[in-house]
Design a protein around this nucleic acid. Structure first.
Length: 561
RNA sequence: AGACCCGUGAUGUAACGGUUAGCAUACAAGAUUUUGAUUCUUGUUGUAAAGGUUCAAAUCCUUUCGGGUUUUCCA
């Protein structure tokens, strides 16, 4: 990581300040704490890159901690998916932890709190408690159970743990301040009864600790030095600190919670509920649909871990609201794929070209560079013959000189091959061009070194020999939503902004070298974009996803006119 | 409404009282190019507003304006 010269973000400033004030570099420790109740998305990726990036920068351990305190929502499946995604992003955690590992410790501490008169069992309904909570401007009122004796609280809490009560009958609350301007300090719930099997502790417990009571204490148990979370938790900090005050040992590290703004990516949604709806309603095929902002979706789409890390790096971390244009992400994939993706030729919207002066039975194999920017990428052979496909968009009967592709009476270079000249074309009854007749200059072969081959012709087209082409299903993806911020409109539902053209499935005609392409392979279809082999691919059927198109300044020129 | 947080070009971010406010993207122009890609060069746009403190303010203070968070037995 060559980030020695990169300016520091505000979190790093905080850490540098701590270091300067005598905090030991060896005591630095971070954590990434997902709840295993769904799939990770691009927003999580930022958090992962932040925490693990800090670990790398300061050579400090980073734990992967599952915040698994709600058995109603959490599953092992998600634990596995999260681990896979973090690994895929290229990070190694120091230890794998679970908040559920701390249930006993948390319970013991809760008992101590009761004994200290700082927690009590409340036996009201949730409605009653909500009514007593007050509002941001009005103080709350105290529960009638607030001053139960320690003995009564202890026996009730033990009975809660023993399973003597139904869900909702009792909760354990911290006794703080019902008049606090911070609603979270108005006697927050620490435990609730939940008769649900947990994916790890099974039925060992029927009371489960709440987030606030769990998170800071888990950080403390793991001796996390800097606990980073999103801005929504800023108000929780006061409670985080209050809970810590109850258990912290002066000789140990006291974790510090700091908050950063969640990264919002344009043209997408990331809330679990909304993504689930997209899946449930069949807008996408699943959580790993290449249009989804999930890590698994991005992976399937062909994004590389490196491009996502670079993205996280360039967008940085701060506290202000943001809406990051998805083009910043797209730039990073292009940038990375440009370096590593082998170049191949594939025609996606074919138009037949016949080279009339090329012998009918002749074929030749032409050497093509795999990556002009990478000497080590080597070469491959591409077949050339009399009948080829080019893109429909690459031929016009007539056009101005800004159009430097094929037009009648003019020449163009076939990439890696010959210079051809369009002589005539044929049309169907509707006037659509069905075939272009060309002649080629036999001495103009690429790399032959002849005077003819060195001739400058403005346009260069990709092509594929019809006889040798293999076909593949090609899935052209576009952004899922037409609005840059689909879920922020008060009067409209995010579903109203679904892009009806987010997926176009076509048949592509590809050079035969692609026959051996394997799932996950990433290539550049020259002049078209970056593509990867989809997981739906079978030995019988090859499927490509378009990761992202190339920059297209021609499209801009055309648009202007 | 209270409390808390936040306002730097089209987007993201940096500058932490001290050069012409930097970097990436975007956009524009030019060069190179057997990908209208890449690469290279150059350029364009910004400190929400008003007051103050100071020799000096994006940075400190005040006010206004704007945005966000906060009232789940979720995390």
């Amino acid at each position: 990581m060559n980030d020695t010269e990169r300016p520091l973000n505000f979190i790093e400033h905080i850490i540098e300040e701590d270091l300067k004030n005598g905090f030991s570099n060896e005591a630095l420790r971070f954590r990434f704490p997902p709840e295993p109740n769904g799939y990770l998305h691009i927003g999580h990726a930022s958090s992962i890159c932040l925490n693990f990036g800090l670990g790398l920068r300061y050579n400090a351990p980073v734990n992967l901690r599952f915040d698994d305190t709600n058995p109603a929502k959490e599953e092992q499946e998600f634990v596995d998916a999260i681990k896979r995604d973090v690994e895929w992003l290229g990070y190694k955690w120091d230890t794998e932890r679970y908040a559920s590992d701390y249930f006993q410790q948390l319970y013991d501490w809760a008992v101590a709190l009761i004994k200290a008169g700082k927690a009590y069992v409340d036996s009201q309904t949730s409605e009653e408690m909500a009514n007593q909570k007050g509002t941001p401007t009005e103080p709350g009122t105290e529960s009638p159970y607030r001053n139960r004796s320690v003995e009564e609280n202890l026996s009730l809490f033990e009975a809660m743990k023993a399973g003597d009560f139904e869900e909702g009958q009792h909760v354990l609350r911290a006794k703080i301040d019902m008049t606090s301007s911070n609603m979270l300090m108005r006697d927050p719930i620490m435990y609730r009864v939940l008769h649900k099997a947990h994916h790890r502790t099974n039925t060992d417990w029927c009371i489960y600790p709440m987030y606030d009571w769990t998170h800071g204490e888990s950080d403390y148990i793991e001796q996390v030095s800097h606990s980073l979370c999103t801005l929504e938790f800023a108000m929780h900090r006061e409670l985080y600190d209050w809970f810590l005050d109850q258990v912290v040992d002066q000789n140990k590290i006291r974790p510090k919670q700091r908050e950063f703004a969640r990264r919002n990516l344009s043209h997408t949604v990331v809330s679990k509920r909304k993504l689930a709806k997209l899946v449930a309603e069949g807008v996408v095929t699943g959580w790993d649909d290449p249009r989804m902002p999930t890590i698994s979706g991005l992976r399937r789409r062909g994004y590389s871990p490196e491009s996502i890390r670079n993205f996280a790096d360039t967008i940085g971390i701060a506290k202000r609201d943001n809406l990051i244009d998805v083009s910043l992400l797209e730039f990073q994939v292009r940038d990375h794929l440009n370096k590593i993706a082998p170049r191949v030729m594939g025609v996606l919207d074919p138009l037949k070209v016949v080279i009339t002066n090329y012998p009918e039975d002749k074929e030749e194999w032409i050497t093509a560079e795999n990556n002009p920017g990478d000497e080590g990428a080597g070469n491959r052979e591409v077949p050339f013959s009399r009948e080829l496909y080019i893109e429909k968009a690459d031929f016009r009967e007539a056009a101005n000189k800004k159009f430097f592709r094929l037009k009648l009476g003019h020449e163009v270079r076939l990439k890696n091959g010959y210079i051809i000249k369009a002589e005539s074309c044929t049309k169907d009854t509707d006037g659509n061009i069905t075939e272009v007749q060309c002649t080629y200059d036999p001495k103009s072969k690429s790399g032959s070194g002849t005077e003819e081959s060195l001739r400058k012709v403005k346009g260069t087209l990709h092509w594929v020999s019809i006889k040798h082409a293999i076909t593949a299903e090609v899935r052209l993806y576009d952004r899922l939503f037409t609005d840059e911020s689909p879920d922020t409109h008060k009067d409209k539902d995010f579903m109203d902004f679904i892009n009806p053209d987010s997926l176009e499935v076509i048949t592509g005609y590809l050079e035969p070298s692609l026959k051996t392409a394997k799932i996950g392979d990433q290539v550049q279809f020259q002049r078209m974009g970056y593509f990867c082999v989809d997981t739906d691919t079978t030995p019988e059927k090859l499927i490509f996803n378009r990761t992202v198109g190339l920059r297209d300044s021609w499209a801009k020129i055309e648009q202007k006119n």
